[in-house]
Simulated scan of single mutants.
Amino acid sequence: MNTFIRTLTVAALTSAPALATVVGEPVTADTLLDRAEMIRIADALDAAVDAKDWTAARSLFADQITVDFTSLVGGEPATIPADGLIAGWSSNLTADKTSFHLRGNHRIAFDGPDTAVMHSHGYAWNRMEAGALPENGGEALWEVWGNYTHEFARGADGWRITGMVFEATAERGSTFVRNTPGS
């Protein structure tokens, strides 16, 4: 492919807003640190949730966030206090329910100098021994695959998550484990 055609192709891919979800935007010297920080925050959120470090998890969000987990649990997207999201997670993921979250293929597009959207693929599982009991279905594990969209805004304290969408693409295992809070 000659240089002119390659330049036009790259320009078309990186300037089309719809393709930002697939390819992201090119990394530049001006955005490198911001991108690294957003990926660090998303990964830190997974690690904090799995460690049940709710203070650390909460620190990664703005005070109000837009959330949409409707593909997984139904309901409607909502704007809620971040404290409410953390309270919900902490009441479901108690000491006897183990979780593991993994994220990759981060693609980031900037909406301005202080706002950005990150798309990534995600995998999570929850394990709870009570699910293995015959009366609870006999399966201790539930797992899900899907796509995340995180919205970020930069404030006085740095980048924070202002929105979070999870679109489940597949799940398997015990709905008892998924739906039952640990004790």
Rank of each mutant, 00 (worst) to 15 (best):
L8K: 08
I39M: 15
P181T: 07
A18S: 14
A116Q: 02
T98D: 06
I5R: 02
I108G: 01
G182P: 10
P181H: 07
P134H: 12
I41Q: 10
F100R: 11
E129T: 15
I5N: 02
M128F: 09
G122C: 11
T9P: 00
D68E: 11
I86P: 00
A48L: 04
N105R: 00
T14N: 04
V67L: 14
L141N: 08
G122P: 01
V22R: 11
M128P: 02
L19N: 05
F69W: 10
K52L: 11
A130H: 10
I161K: 03
L13Q: 03
R35F: 12
A11N: 13
A124T: 08
N126H: 15
A170K: 12
A109C: 01
T3K: 11
T175Y: 06
Y148V: 01
L8I: 05
H101L: 01
E135M: 09
D83S: 14
R127L: 08
T175D: 07
S91Y: 03
T115N: 00
A57M: 09
G84R: 13
L60S: 09
A44L: 09
F100G: 04
G88W: 07
T70G: 12
M118E: 11
T162K: 02
G122N: 03
H106P: 00
S59V: 07
A20D: 06
W54G: 09
N105D: 04
W125A: 06
A18L: 14
